[in-house]
Each structure stands twice: as C-alpha cells, then as structure tokens.
C-alpha cells in the first residue's frame, strides 16, 4: 500500500515530463515543418537541337541552388548555353552536380529537331541517368527509370509530412493488428487509383484547394481521435478502411502533383507511375513500421501518456493541420 502510494507521485511526475516534452516538440518542430511542407525542389533545363549534335540549353525552371550544374557525357562539350556532342549525339550518362538538400530533382528536357521532346529526370537519390538513342528499347534506360522513380516516390512520401501525419492519425485510431493492415491497404488502394487517374490526366484538381483539402483530412482524423477518447467512436473508429480509402483518393491527387510536374513523356508515363507508386508504398511502410515499433517500445518501457493528457497528440495534429489549411487556402 505504502509502496503504491510512493510510486504514484513518480508516475505522475514522469507523465507530466513526457507531456512537457511532447508539447515542446510540437511547439518547436511542427509549425516549422508546416511551413516547409512540400517545397518545390525541382529544376528544369531545356536543350533544343539546332543542328545535328548541337544544342542550345536554357533553364526553363531555374534551380533554387545556384551551384546546380548539369554534367553531360564526356564526348559532349558544354559551354553554356551551347552543348556540342558531335556525331554521337547526346547519348551516355547525364547527371547534375549539386543535387542535395536544396534541390532534390532536376530534369533535362531534350527537344530534337525531329520527333517529340524527351524528358530525363535525375534525382539526388539517383544522381545519374543513361541516355540512349532509343530509350524505348534499351533495358538499361528502363532500369534507370525504375530506379529513379522508386527513389522519387520514397523521397516524396518521406518529405510529405502531411501524408505521414494522416497515416499517424489512422494508426493512432486503429492501434494495430489486422484492422490496421486493412486500413493502410485501403489508403494505399485509394491513393493509387487517384494517383493514376491524375497522372494520366483523367482528373484534375487545382493544387491549392487540393492541398487545403488534404490538410482538412488531417483535421478530421484529429477530431476522430478526440471523439474516440471521449468514448464516442466516430466514422474512422467504426469503418477505418472506408475513411482511409476515401481520403486515400484525396492524398493520391496530392502525390500526382509531384509526378505530373516532371513532364514525363507519355510513352514512359505508365512505368514511371508504377515505380513512383512502389516508392510511395515503400516509404509509407517504413513509416508505419517505425511508428508501430516505437509504440511497442513505449509499452515495454511503460513510458505512456497519462489518461488526462491522452488527447494532447490529437489536438496537436488538429492544430498543425488547421494551420496548414489556413496557409493553403
């Protein structure tokens, strides 16, 4: 009895400390991340062929980082704005110097004298790209394409704090087990459908209202967490997969903006979409696993939030998402 009485203040102190840290974390980190969510980090250079093997280059979307420079195959001579590749033409390895934290993706758009324009996308994850004379038949080019877009998908989901926050909210409500598997699968199916639809141009939503709606979806999840903790299970608690699927459709449109902005040629679009989506799923799975592992570790260490403070994460999620909503409309 005495031992129990002695433990109670320690438990209270620990929980108060945990809450204080959580509040500090949220106060400092999340608003800052809010402002940084989904920064445009792409640069585009267009090369127009003026004579066989001779191009004129121009930044059509200038880089945020002035140190970013294209690196062309060794047989090409780059004296901005002119690129001379001779008889071999623009074939071989393309890359960019300076890809990193400020500029994650750079695109080279080649406009030949005859035929359609071809777009090559280089990301910091996949800093080189092979250019073949016939990209459609070269297996190495296709492998490069897959490598590039899987990494781009992982980049996009891990940088997209709003998508991650929504998934965190779902995990918070559903907790774990098969229900969580079904919920995350429903979210995946939903965003895959709308990602494909938007990438192929079947549906189109203006970016600002779309991002505002994505923020609202996170507010909704925050409200649902609070309702659940008050003993009033909402729609998400009762039918999590339906909510996950519906909002998955919304978030998929958001994913598509990252892909459509690259201006990928129609011929390579399906494979690019497939690998981009694979990358998004890998990144999402990594996040879900990390959150579940941390929840398990907290239970093992008995480092849990007190009952009276259990709603704070939901309010934090809701507040941050409301802030995003206001800044995006």
């Amino acid at each position: 009895m005495i031992a129990l009485a002695e433990r109670a203040p320690a438990r209270r102190a620990f929980r108060s400390g945990l809450l204080a840290v959580l509040a500090l974390f949220c106060a400092l980190l999340l608003p800052s991340l809010a402002a940084r969510a989904h920064e445009a980090t792409m640069a585009v250079i267009t090369l127009r062929e003026i004579a066989p093997g001779r191009f004129i280059g121009q930044w059509t979307m200038p880089p945020a980082d002035v140190t970013l420079q294209p690196i062309f195959p060794a047989h090409c001579q780059w004296n901005p704005p002119e690129l001379v590749c001779g008889e071999r033409g623009l074939t071989g390895r393309l890359s960019f110097m300076g890809l990193g934290s400020k500029q994650s993706v750079a695109t080279i758009r080649v406009v030949p004298r005859e035929g359609p324009a071809v777009v090559y996308t280089v990301s910091a994850a996949k800093p080189t790209m092979m250019v073949a004379s016939e990209p459609g038949t070269n297996l190495a080019v296709w492998a490069d394409l897959a490598d590039t877009y899987v990494n781009l998908g992982i980049d996009h989901i891990l940088r997209g704090i709003d998508h991650l926050l929504f998934v965190l909210g779902l995990i918070w409500i559903v907790k774990g087990g098969w229900r969580l598997v079904k919920t995350i699968t429903a979210f995946t199916v939903g965003h895959s459908i709308s990602l494909a639809a938007a990438t192929f141009g079947w549906v189109g939503v203006p970016e600002r209202p779309l991002n505002a709606a994505i923020a609202l979806s996170i507010v909704f999840v925050g409200v649902e967490i609070v309702k659940l903790q008050r003993g009033e299970p909402g729609l998400t608690a009762r039918y999590p997969w339906i909510v996950a699927f519906a909002f998955g459709l919304l978030h998929g449109l958001g994913f598509a903006t990252a892909l459509t902005a690259l201006g990928i040629p129609q011929a390579t679009l399906p494979i690019a979409l497939l690998f981009f989506n694979v990358g998004v799923e890998i990144g999402q799975l990594m996040f879900v696993m990390a959150v579940l592992a941390l929840m398990w570790a907290h239970r093992q260490a008995q480092a849990l939030l007190p009952r009276w403070g259990a709603a704070i994460p939901a309010y934090v999620i809701g507040s941050v998402a409301s802030f995003w909503f206001l800044t995006r409309i």
Binding site: S32, S101, A293, L294, W296, A297, H298, R299, Q300, A301
Partner: peptide, 28 residues
C-alpha cells in the same frame, strides 16, 4: 548551408527513436 533547425531536429528524433527502441528491446 545546413538548415540548423531541421538538422538538430533530426538528431533529436533519431536519438529518441534509437534509445526508446533499444530500451524496449532490452527490457523485453
């Protein structure tokens, strides 16, 4: 050129995650 706030947040979060996971595993 490093964004100091983001970098230090990353260090803090990984420190928290690493120690929490290692602690959970050791206790289990």
């Amino acid at each position: 050129t490093t964004d100091r706030f983001l970098f230090l947040s990353g260090v803090t979060v990984i420190g928290y995650a690493f120690v929490t996971l290692a602690l959970g595993c050791a206790i289990a």
